[in-house]
């Protein structure tokens, strides 16, 4: 099953496409580590969302401005207090969590800011990584193209590890999807998926 969406031919990366499906039209979206603003631009154009991105890299901030995406240049590891009183319907962290230092704090904070949190992580438990480790090496591939000594990623987790953490932090998982490129993986996802995407919220938000 293909996940690419976009009636005007502009397609999103598979985890972003999955995340976009969980975002209601006209809602307020905060994308932490928004990159060049692709998702937010898509959501503004196709879902009339009010969107805001957060990025640390100069070239990505520039790309967002060029797209007309509102963006705040900031380091999400230095705290999200700036966004606390603004409240968003959705807070997105797409493949950005593994490069945060204070991962646990970031998760707690996004739970406070967003009515729902949409997070994708690379699944370190993918069979190819296991095979690589069995062969004596840290996995290096097109999705994780860094060697152990120059990776920007501080924290690797398997899908199961991440789900355990969400539970421990008092989050309720509302939806999840396991992906390999743009395919949804249903059979043995913890071994066969390269990406896991979650929709969750703080349990106390339950109505």
């Amino acid at each position: 099953m293909s996940l690419s969406i976009g009636p005007h031919g502009d397609s999103l990366r598979s985890d972003l496409a999955q995340i976009a499906k969980w975002i209601a039209p006209n809602s307020r979206v905060l994308d932490l580590g928004c990159g060049d603003g692709t998702l937010l631009h898509w959501l503004s154009v196709h879902r009339s969302c009010q969107s805001l991105g957060v990025e640390i890299a100069d070239e990505n901030v520039l790309a967002c401005v060029q797209r007309g995406v509102s963006v705040i240049q900031a380091d999400i590891d230095r705290g999200l207090a700036m966004f606390a009183r603004g409240r968003f319907d959705s807070v997105v962290l797409s493949q950005a969590l593994q490069s945060t230092r204070e991962t646990e704090r970031v998760l707690r904070e996004i739970g406070e800011i967003g009515l729902q949190c949409l997070v994708s992580i690379p699944n370190f438990g993918h069979w190819s990584h296991v095979a690589s480790l069995l062969a004596g090496h840290m996995p290096v591939n097109k999705r994780l193209p860094y060697a152990w000594y120059n990776t920007p990623n501080f924290h690797f987790a398997t899908a199961q590890d991440f789900e355990d953490l969400l539970d421990r932090l008092g989050f309720e998982v509302l939806d999840q999807a396991y992906l390999d490129d743009d395919q949804i993986i249903r059979l043995l996802p913890s071994l066969r998926s390269t990406l896991a995407v979650y929709r969750f919220r703080k349990k106390s938000f339950r109505v």
Partner: peptide
């Protein structure tokens, strides 16, 4: 500048912020 940004965000006003090194 971040104080101004935060105040605008609190009011849900559209804002872009760049910090030039």
């Amino acid at each position: 500048s971040r104080e101004i940004v935060e105040a605008l965000l609190t009011q849900r006003k559209p804002v872009t912020y760049a910090e030039i090194d």
